[in-house]
Design a binder for these strands. Structure first.
Lengths: 260, 260
DNA sequence: GTCGGTTCTTGATGCGCGTCAAGGCCCAGC
DNA sequence: GCTGGGCCTTGACGCGCATCAAGAACCGAC
């Protein structure tokens, strides 16, 4: 029997449930890409370390609670089930990103899902009420990080709106590779923690169409794949030339990857 | 002779040039929708009032300067010229919104353009270095406002990705009407400061298609128009029922309009 | 008022992508 | 090894939107 692309890929059961809480100190020494060194201390001291497994859905507390989360390792996506049936991925979160309910519109069925095993820190800003200095630093940190998230969302809008679907896919792989992959010369390789359907939902494409596009990109030599879950961008330069917005991707994600 | 939709609508000349600087006190008494009352004082005291004319392009300083702008009245759009030719509008800014270069990805040809005559305030956070309290308040304010902008951008992504073009147009008019229009019962009316091409560029549609859709919406009775630049949403309830995301639009923009 | 330019509308046509359907690939379980 | 069930790929086909083109409505200048 053929299952033909079950709704949210069948593993709905595994998705529910809250993330497991671990002891803090296991993360206290981990480096993560936060500009201000003090920030690491603040999160380690006042935050609660958490861990999420692949495909696990993170319960983000109630509506407008003030809880914020910091992603230390792994990959998260913001997903929504458009009332009908079609799922869509609205944003991708990389290590170093923060997120909270305030950043998300009140759409039905939005949630944050782990695409890989993740380590994160939950922080309640009110826990810092005693030390104004730390609170101030946190605010400054949040301003900067939220602005970066916004710039990335705007970039994503630009990609969705102005790029052909083929360029969209190429730009997506480039972004992921710059963030999570290994750079060597002009070539970048990375794992694809998102399935084909996930990628399609993120780029607002059909999974079938995405598959066709991947085939086209491969046959043209723009990207290569190793197995199903690993991709290689052959020439970043050439890609940036073909797809102008990729320059912005490089600027936004390249430096983040370099510093992280 | 037929001009047939000239590139950025011909008025490119009028677009260039910096916004005119006016004296501050002419705005000092104006109410604007900022949650914290102190914020108004901070901007009035340390900021520089500016005014922009319809279709004027705002020069936002160099790359990563720390200047922030607060929109007091009018409507701004974030626009980008995709390297080819196609312009796109990436975001709409309403009174009470703040923006800075940090919120914008480094795409070629991005700029902020006034869709109506606008009043705004330019503020350099470093001007507040002397008063830590105000600096702290500004940070907190920025966190909140940037988060709201992000939520709106995400909502826009959701609309672009999941809605039929007809629903997209309806949702757009609803948003604009809730923000800038007059509500009475279940009906909302508003001016359309954006031309058809502008709207099309924002919704990533073709201007011709948009025109067809408007005709369809009118003949179906969902919206009505008065002249070319005024629209009326006949029944907000019915629209919210047909287009699920409109509920989120109501939540995000309805309350802002109510408080503003 | 008339005129010129812009913006909007509407028609005909073609292509891209979504959809449906059938198979192939890959991996886990036994 | 084999088998079954997700995933992924690939084909056929239809609809929706972009494109091109022409004309209508609107608006300001004079």
């Amino acid at each position: 029997m053929k299952t033909q692309r079950a709704k949210p890929s069948g593993s709905a059961v595994a998705l529910t449930g809250t993330a497991t809480v671990r002891s803090i100190d296991s993360y206290a020494s981990t480096a993560f890409p936060v500009s201000d060194g003090d920030m690491e201390v603040i999160f380690a001291t006042h935050g609660v370390a958490m861990r999420a497994r692949r495909r696990q859905r993170l319960v983000m507390g109630s509506k407008r609670s003030d809880v914020i989360y910091l992603l230390k390792t792994g990959l998260l996506v913001l997903s929504a089930i458009g009332s009908g049936d079609r799922r869509q991925l609205l944003a991708i979160l990389y290590p170093g990103d923060v997120f909270s309910m305030a950043l998300v519109p009140p759409i039905d069925g939005v949630s944050v899902v782990a695409m890989t095993d993740c380590e994160l820190v939950r922080l309640r800003p009110s826990a810092l009420d005693d030390s104004p200095r730390e609170l101030r630093e946190l605010d400054a940190f949040m301003v900067q990080r939220t602005a970066e998230l916004h710039a990335r969302s705007i970039l994503h809008i630009a990609r969705l709106a102005s790029l052909s679907s083929e360029s969209r896919v190429a730009a997506f792989i480039l972004e992921l590779a710059l963030r999570t992959g290994q750079v060597s010369n002009d070539t970048v390789a990375c794992d694809l923690p998102l399935s084909r359907s996930d990628i399609a939902d993120y780029l607002s494409l059909n999974a079938d169409t995405l598959s066709r596009i991947m085939t086209r990109l491969k046959s043209r030599g723009a990207v290569a794949t190793v197995g199903r879950s690993r991709a290689i961008v052959k020439s970043v330069k050439r890609l940036s030339k073909e797809v102008p917005i990729c320059a912005a991707t490089l600027a936004l994600h390249g430096q983040a990857a370099a510093s992280g």
